[in-house]
C-alpha cells in the first residue's frame, strides 16, 4: 500500500477566515509569520479539504481500512438473533476501482478507496461505521471525496442515446448518519441525510432528504415497540423522509458504470445544539439549521458520549450498488 507521510506546520490548519488579520500582516523588519491557510493549501494531501480548527482524523484508504467496519445489530453471542435488516450489511472493501473495460481506475489520490457494496437484492444496504467518542461538545465537520456506481449490466438497452445511460436508474441512494449520545445515559439522537438518486418507484429524483422518524433500536425491538422491516433500516416506515430545502442536485454519474468522477462533500453538525448546520456537496451548500433532529424517548446506557459516523449505500433493484470513498477528514472547531 502507499503510505504517505506529511508534516503540518506549527501554524496548524485554521482556514484563512479564522486567522486574525493582524497575524497575517508582516510589518517590515519583523519576524515572518506563516499563514496557516497557506500551509493547508500547499499540502497536496489536505488541500482538497477545508477543515475546521482541529483535525480529529484523516483517513486515506491507501493506508488501510482506518476503522471503518460493517455495521451490525446488537446481539448476545448468538448471530441468529441479529434483527432483520441489520444482519448482513457487508464488510467494507479496499477497492482499486477496477472495471471490465478499462481495468484499474484507481482513486482520486493513489490507488485504493473504501468501497461499500450491496448484494444484488432489492433494498439491500451496505453500511460502514466509524466509532469514537467526543471529548467536548463542539461543531464537527465530516468531509469526504466520494463517487457512486451501480454494477455493470449487460442487458443492452437499445434506447440508449449514447449519452445518458439507463444504468443511472440502477442506483438507489446514499445515506450519511450519526449516532450520538449527548452525555451519560442520553439523550441519544441521530442526524440522518440521504441522497436519493431514485425513488422507491425507480424514478430519478436526485435530491437530498432527511429522516422524519428514528431508526428502531435493538432495545425497542426487544421491548416490542418496533415492527421489523428490511427495506430501510434508518426509519420506522419506509416513507418517513422529507426533502432538504434547496436540495435538488443532479450529481456527475458520467454516462457509464465504469467512469469514476469524484465528488466533494462537507457536512457540519453541532454537538452543543444537537443540530445539523450545513451540507455542501460540490457547488451546492444547503443550510440545515432548521432541519429537525429526533431524539430517542428513553435512556441508553453504555454509550456515553458516543459519536459514530455511518455511511451506507442502498440498491433498489437486483443490481449491486457501490459507494467509493477516496478519503475522509473529520475536524472540530475547538
Amino acid at each position: 500500500m502507499n503510505r504517505r507521510f506529511f508534516t503540518l506546520g506549527l501554524g496548524g490548519l485554521a482556514s484563512a477566515s479564522q486567522v486574525p488579520k493582524a497575524a497575517m500582516e508582516q510589518p517590515a523588519g519583523q519576524q515572518v509569520m506563516l499563514d496557516p491557510s497557506a500551509l493547508l493549501l500547499a499540502n497536496p494531501e489536505l488541500s482538497r479539504f477545508r477543515p475546521l480548527r482541529r483535525v480529529l482524523f484523516y483517513d486515506d484508504f491507501d493506508d488501510g481500512i482506518n476503522g471503518w467496519v460493517e455495521l451490525q445489530a446488537n446481539h448476545n453471542g448468538n448471530l441468529d438473533d441479529l434483527r432483520p435488516g441489520f444482519n448482513d450489511m457487508r464488510p467494507p472493501q479496499l477497492s482499486s476501482c477496477t472495471f471490465f473495460d478499462v481495468g484499474t481506475h484507481g482513486s482520486l489520490n493513489g490507488t485504493y478507496s473504501l468501497k461499500l457494496a450491496t448484494r444484488p437484492k432489492p433494498f439491500h444496504s451496505a453500511v460502514a461505521i466509524k466509532r469514537f467518542t467526543y471529548s467536548q461538545p463542539c461543531r464537527v465537520q465530516l468531509e469526504m471525496w466520494f463517487t457512486y456506481k451501480p454494477e455493470q449490466t449487460f442487458d443492452g438497452d437499445t434506447h440508449w442515446d449514447g449519452n445518458a445511460s439507463p444504468a443511472e436508474l440502477n442506483f438507489g441512494d446514499i445515506t450519511l448518519s450519526t449516532d450520538i449520545c449527548g452525555g451519560v445515559g442520553g439523550p441519544r439522537y441521530m442526524l440522518v441525510l440521504r441522497y436519493a438518486n431514485t425513488d422507491l418507484e425507480g424514478k430519478m429524483v436526485q435530491k437530498w432528504m432527511y429522516n422524519t422518524s428514528l431508526e428502531p433500536t435493538t432495545k425497542m425491538y426487544r421491548q416490542g415497540r418496533a415492527v421489523p422491516q428490511i427495506v430501510d433500516h434508518h426509519v420506522r416506515n419506509v416513507n418517513d423522509w422529507a426533502d432538504v430545502p434547496g436540495g435538488h442536485q443532479p450529481l456527475c454519474f458520467n454516462e457509464m458504470p465504469t467512469k469514476v468522477n469524484w465528488h466533494y462533500l462537507r457536512w457540519v453538525f453541532d454537538l452543543r445544539t444537537r443540530k445539523h448546520e450545513e451540507l455542501q456537496v460540490n457547488e451546492l451548500a444547503m443550510d440545515l439549521r432548521n432541519i429537525p433532529v429526533l431524539t430517542y424517548d428513553q435512556p441508553y446506557y453504555a454509550v456515553n458520549h458516543l459519536l459514530n459516523l455511518v455511511i451506507d449505500v442502498r440498491t433498489h433493484k437486483a443490481v449491486r450498488n457501490f459507494l467509493f470513498i477516496d478519503s475522509v477528514l473529520v475536524s472540530q472547531d475547538v
Partner: peptide, 14 residues
C-alpha cells in the same frame, strides 16, 4: 509501519 491485514466476514450464519 506494520503491514496491513483485514478479516472480512463474507457469510454470517448463512
Amino acid at each position: 509501519m506494520v503491514n496491513n491485514s483485514f478479516t472480512a466476514v463474507i457469510e454470517k450464519n448463512s
